[in-house]
Simulated assay, not measured.
Amino acid sequence: MTHNNWFAQSADWLVAKPLTILLILVVAMVLRSIARRLIDKLTRANSGGKVPALLRPLKERAPQALGSLLSERRAQRAKTIGSVFKSITSVLVFGTAFMMILAELGVNLAPVLASAGILGVAIGFGAQNVVKDFLSGVFMMLEDQYGVGDVVDVGEASGTVEAVGLRITTMRDVNGTVWYVRNGEILRVGNSSQGFAVAVVDVPIGYGADVEQATGIIDRVATEVSDNEPMSNDVLEPPEVLGVERVSASEGIMLRLTVKVRPGRQWAVQRALRARIMAAFEDAGIPGPLVRGFPNGE
């Protein structure tokens, strides 16, 4: 077309290869865009609070008692897992495109792959804590060990989970302090918001008290509280009076009551039962441990 020998000999480099590289980039961007749209569709929460499609094959331990926090937890979990898949997709697509471009330019890929492997090992070794936090966060998300709204104990900190990321978990304790815990540093997790909880109520009485009478009062009061609202909405099974838990010089005789309740509601049930039982003891004249030294509990 140009009647120029140099252009004719260089047409492959000047026209064919640039067009091939451009085509590779366009195809890579289109594939990445399609993959990201598909991931967004799978992670988008449906109307009516249904589980996102991406989470359906995964096990979910979130209690229904979380209410409005349940949808927030699912959305955050789906969004985080979706971001991981998006990052993996981008690396695979553009990494493959980069290798194809190098091959098109006539570069020997063997030394490049070897250098990339050595560089990856060096970066991974230098940033092993970040990689550890990231991988721990991924597995926590996939296994749904905890999520937004759960009350957890991770060893150094305990409280209500406010956010779960791939590297950091944000928690707020009962004093209002916000804790930022690295996922890689979490060796164990005690979750008080999965399945069910047990409200354990220990009630002390004096040595001169009638244990059978006190046990009967505890059983009666606990049944009344459990059968009436609002506690009836939280109690899952009838209360169980275990009887004498321990005897000590400072605490007197300790009686124990347990109630199976909805997750996260054990503390409210404990406070309500303890207040009602102590009031019933006072009405019945059951002496407390502080008056054990007086005859007949007087």
Rank of each mutant, 00 (worst) to 15 (best):
K86V: 07
K86W: 12
K86E: 09
S87Y: 07
S87M: 13
I88E: 05
S90H: 08
V91H: 07
V91R: 00
L92M: 05
L92Q: 04
L92F: 00
L92W: 00
V93K: 05
V93R: 02
V93C: 02
F94L: 06
F94P: 00
G95Y: 04
T96G: 15
T96R: 05
A97K: 02
M100R: 03
M100S: 07
I101E: 02
L102N: 02
A103R: 06
A103H: 13
A103I: 05
E104W: 06
E104M: 03
E104P: 05
G106E: 00
V107Q: 00
N108K: 11
N108L: 11
L109H: 03
L109K: 08
P111L: 01
V112L: 03
V112D: 03
L113A: 14
L113S: 10
A114P: 06
S115V: 10
S115M: 09
A116K: 02
I118R: 00
G120P: 12
G120L: 00
V121K: 01
F125L: 11
F125V: 08
G126Y: 10
G126L: 15
A127V: 04
A127P: 07
A127Q: 15
Q128C: 09
V130T: 15
V131G: 10
V131H: 12
F134T: 02
F134Y: 12
L135M: 15
G137Q: 04
G137Y: 10
G137V: 03
V138C: 06
F139A: 10
F139Y: 12
M140E: 12
M140T: 12
M140V: 13
M141G: 15
M141P: 06
L142I: 15
L142Q: 08
E143K: 13
D144M: 13
D144S: 10
G147D: 13
G147L: 10
V148Q: 12
G149A: 09
G149Q: 09
D150I: 13
D153Q: 10
D153G: 14
V154H: 12
V154K: 07
V154E: 08
G155N: 08
G155Q: 09
E156A: 09
